[in-house]
Design a protein around this nucleic acid. Structure first.
Lengths: 106, 106
DNA sequence: GCTTTATATTACAATATCATGATATACTGA
DNA sequence: TCAGTATATCATGATATTGTAATATAAAGC
């Protein structure tokens, strides 16, 4: 069982991924790092929004970043986050196939 | 890469877990099923809140439920969700140990 | 120092989520 | 049918999140 601090942290982590754009960003940044502007363009959002989404993902530890010249490159922190994203993707695909049939559990 | 419907679904799934109480509920319901009132008492919240939290978790497929007499028993849907919770717990514990040191990735 | 480029921060209206109390629905047993 | 119990839904005020524009900060080259 998680202690309270870990629970709060985990909830914040889930919260950071609880937005379609941030989820797409996290997914994109597993492949390779990108600058804020690159993310903004790829996601079709403004620079400010991109910066804020990236900042939120980095604050909870999903992303890390390093400056390079006037730019800052963001990428996913490590393999655990990629595993979580894969599991969720799997889960959602199965769930969308079987929908309300409920995997014969109830 | 996830298609748009899957992305939306995954974001909703993360959103359901993005709340300390719901996270504790999900964790508790991996061990054994519970009724709404049992959850309410164990979490120290009201019946209405418990019902709504459980309903949200069930809506996105994290929980399943079955009625029994006048009660309804909720439990976690399957092993994938338990794996996700474990991974997140691990991640958060490592992250809280190393904090801003950033696992030497940047 | 000035200009350009890239990013971060601030401000704020619109929207969504949350907690809580009241009410409604549904099942059980007398 | 009536009373009691369990759950779900509705209503709503408080709080938080989102999207966007404007402004601020910081680095690089001239």
């Amino acid at each position: 069982m998680m202690d309270q601090a870990t629970t709060e942290r985990a909830a914040a982590l889930f919260g950071a991924l609880a937005h379609p754009v941030r989820l797409r960003i996290a997914e994109a940044l597993t492949a390779h790092s990108m600058t804020v502007n690159e993310v903004a363009h790829q996601m079709g959002i403004g620079q400010s929004g991109a910066s804020q989404h990236l900042s939120q993902l980095a604050r909870v530890g999903i992303l890390v970043s390093e400056p390079k010249g006037t730019s800052r490159y963001y990428r996913v922190r490590g393999p655990r986050i990629e595993m979580i994203l894969s599991l969720i993707e799997e889960f959602c695909q199965v769930h969308s196939l079987y929908g309300e049939i409920d995997e014969h559990h109830s």
